[in-house]
Design a protein around this nucleic acid. Structure first.
Length: 691
DNA sequence: GAGTTTGAAACT
DNA sequence: CAGTTTCAAACTC
């Protein structure tokens, strides 16, 4: 393909020179398209001008979330680029299109359905466009003949990885990177993970970063302008340190962001993620800051590759930074609510001990909850390490402990493509991740559009489909449901179960699984729910007063109830609810119901210095937000005061029992990293209040 | 690990 | 809305 000499056309000035060249004029005279292309490129340049080439290159460090950025960032540009370079991109795009067609095909039915409804077809089409444009954009970015992205070629030249990567499709790379990240996650020393966690604490800094986007871009630009190795190093380190500075963004700024949540798009990652109208400024700012964050990582990689010849340790560090960057930017374009909330939770007052405990290889608290659950009678294991999980019966434990996303749902879907509520991950609003054994899974970030659209459809059928299934009340909410006996945490399954043969004593029963008693709304037969029978009977002993006392810290304390019960009543013939699987789901749904509150608390938390030893200001923030939600923001039964949503998080009791502090941040970080919060789906929730 | 049971979700 | 089918988790062996 006739591409200009890429070395000549790096920055804008070079581009101008190039356009002034006789060759260009000749080409220009031959093809009016070329002229248009140039102009488009200029337009594009306004947003991409100072982007690092590497930031546009779908390199490993960019990982799975890259496409998301393109969804809201580069789409306009991709169109412009695409129009001008269709021929250039077509080759690469064809491959990608095959994959895009994959979910295009899947979307076919959805599309038709939407068309029939005549409501969201346009939106869907847009999403379809995005789905196909994104890969093209990626491809284009890497091979752009426009000199702007010089280093796109530079990186592959300098890194064998880059060369190999470039030969594969962006989707393939993205997918592989997801896997790589999982791999790294497992194999990296825990110490490194600690650093990662600490750095990832700034996950919600995207908004804050927007304010300094220009500085970022300058830094990144310097990196590429500088040919001197030392200078490059300086620039890199400077940029990196700048990141650190950013990561320590003061609290008040975050509060400002929170205050500006609705008004200032740049302050709301969600809004960008939501796919709803976002201002150009927000897009550009956000994208710029995000991209430039990537630049830092990339430049670091280049330095390592060039000067240390792919030193492995450097790669590890780079790997960490990569993940942190991906992690950091996640909120901007595809977070998972569950992850968000977990992060908030993760920055609980005890998170200050993350490093030390991680170094000791101790089990995070939320993972300890898993241990507690699975070995309820061996509290000694609470502070145990992985050596405790070698026995076959503890396979699952070990699995969950080894896997950082301990509390994440996993599915094994074979036919639903993980796009139905059958899929636990999907139902919980989670993307499927590596531990899932699902087949033909579409519930992945790369199929974000499919996922979101499917969610929309399901929600259109049942607005509460993704809402928390369990509600909790301190007063008359349950009475309104015909429930009079206050059972554990006064929580009830919203819809009730329909058990016929399990007597509501197994996890087949949703009520039981959720750790709540059956209510009159249940249609179960022979209910023997140990958490509370439908007929009002009580199989197990609970301290109602204590339970009510937990209302203050509902999300934290519920599991205490459950685990406490289990520990205090080991005679129960059935295991306690699977706590390890609940927190994400419930928190996620909780977040979906109270996005503002969650966001606020997150912002509050994120204001915390990464690795800060004092996160006390964070955790209460979450709680206060969760419990101080304005009634106007409680879509479900807003008229009922005291209504809270049951969350089944980690065991506070474990916290107390354990000698090691709570480490929810570990799983939080992982969850954040490995799954994207579907904030976009939050606003898709229809008003749940009665019309 | 394979097969069975179960009940929710989806479909008609 | 009820009946049926599909589905995947839970469970059993």
């Amino acid at each position: 393909m006739d591409t200009p000499d890429k070395t000549q056309i790096t920055p804008t000035s070079n581009l101008s020179k190039f356009e002034d060249s006789p060759v260009f004029k000749y080409i220009d005279s031959l093809s009016p398209i070329e002229l248009a292309k140039s102009k488009q490129a200029d337009n594009v340049f306004s947003s991409l001008a100072f982007l690092s080439p590497s930031s546009l290159f779908p390199s490993p460090q960019i990982g799975c979330h890259r496409e998301s950025r393109h969804h809201f960032l580069s789409l306009s540009t991709s169109k412009a680029l695409q129009s001008g370079h269709e021929s250039n991109a077509s080759e690469g795009a064809s491959k990608v299109d095959e994959q895009s067609d994959m979910y295009d095909e899947h979307l076919g039915c959805l599309k038709n359905d939407c068309s029939s409804k005549g409501t969201s077809s346009n939106l869907l089409n847009d999403q379809l466009d995005l789905a196909t444009e994104f890969p093209r954009t990626l491809k284009y970015d890497c091979r752009s003949p426009e000199g702007n992205f010089e280093a796109c070629d530079e990186i592959p030249k300098n890194t064998s990885v880059g060369v190999a990567e470039e030969e594969r499709s962006p989707f393939q790379r993205n997918r592989d990177e997801c896997e790589k990240r999982q791999f790294h996650k497992r194999d990296l020393p825990k110490k490194c993970r600690v650093k990662e966690i600490d750095e990832s604490a700034g996950c919600d800094w995207v908004a804050a970063l927007s304010d300094v986007a220009d500085m970022w871009t300058m830094n990144s630009f310097i990196i590429h302008e500088n040919t001197d190795g030392q200078d490059r190093r300086k620039a890199d380190s400077g940029t990196t340190s700048f990141i650190s500075t950013i990561m320590q963004f003061p609290l008040d700024n975050a509060n400002n962001l929170e205050n500006a949540e609705s008004g200032d798009p740049s302050s709301s990652c969600k809004q960008n993620e939501l796919g709803e109208p976002v201002t150009d400024r927000a897009q550009s700012i956000l994208s710029t800051s995000l991209l430039d964050k990537l630049v830092v990582s990339d430049s670091g990689l280049k330095k390592d590759d060039k000067e240390e010849n792919c030193n492995q340790s450097s790669h590890q560090q780079v790997g960490i930074r990569r993940r942190c960057l991906v992690f950091e930017k996640s909120p901007g374009f595809g977070l998972h609510l569950n992850s968000l909330l977990n992060i908030s939770k993760g920055q609980s007052p005890l998170s200050k001990s993350i490093p030390s405990s991680m170094d000791r290889g101790e089990v995070p608290d939320d993972k300890r909850a898993v241990v507690t659950e699975n070995s309820s009678e061996t509290p000694a294991t609470l502070g145990g390490n992985e050596s405790d999980h070698n026995s076959p019966e503890k396979k699952r434990q070990k699995f969950e402990l080894v896997d950082e996303s301990a509390a994440c749902k996993r599915c094994n879907c074979k036919r639903s493509k993980c796009l139905k509520l059958y899929c636990d991950c999907f139902a919980a609003g989670l993307y499927c991740i590596e531990p899932c054994a699902c087949q033909d899974c579409f519930n992945k970030p790369i199929h974000e559009n499919v996922v979101l659209e499917t969610r929309r459809q399901i929600e259109s059928r049942n607005p509460l489909a993704f809402a928390p299934k369990v509600i909790r009340s301190t007063d008359n909410v349950l009475d309104s449901l015909g429930e009079t006996n206050k059972t554990p945490a006064s929580a009830r399954h919203k819809r009730g179960c329909n058990c016929k043969r399990s007597s509501c004593l197994k996890k087949y029963c949703e009520c039981f699984q959720a750790g709540v008693g059956c209510s009159l709304s249940c249609r179960c037969e022979g209910c023997k729910n140990s958490f509370g029978r439908k007929d009002g009977g009580y199989e197990s002993v609970y301290d109602g007063d204590n339970l009510e006392a937990h209302d203050v810290n509902a999300s934290e304390e519920k599991s205490d109830i459950v685990i406490g019960k289990d520990q205090e009543h080991p005679h129960l013939s059935v295991p306690p609810p699977d706590i390890s699987r609940l927190p994400f789901a419930y928190r996620g749904k909780l977040a979906a119901f109270f996005p503002h509150s969650i966001k606020s608390s997150l912002q509050l938390c994120s204001t915390q210095e990464p690795g800060s030893s004092d996160s006390s200001s964070c955790h209460p923030g979450l709680d206060s937000n969760l419990h101080g939600i304005p009634e106007s923001e409680t879509p479900e039964i807003p008229e009922h005061k005291g209504l809270t949503l049951v969350s089944k998080p980690t065991s506070p009791k474990c916290k107390r029992v354990s000698s090691t502090p709570n480490l929810p941040c570990t799983s939080s970080s992982t969850a954040w990293r490995s799954r994207k919060l579907i904030l976009r789906s939050v606003p898709s929730f229809p008003p749940l209040a009665p019309p």
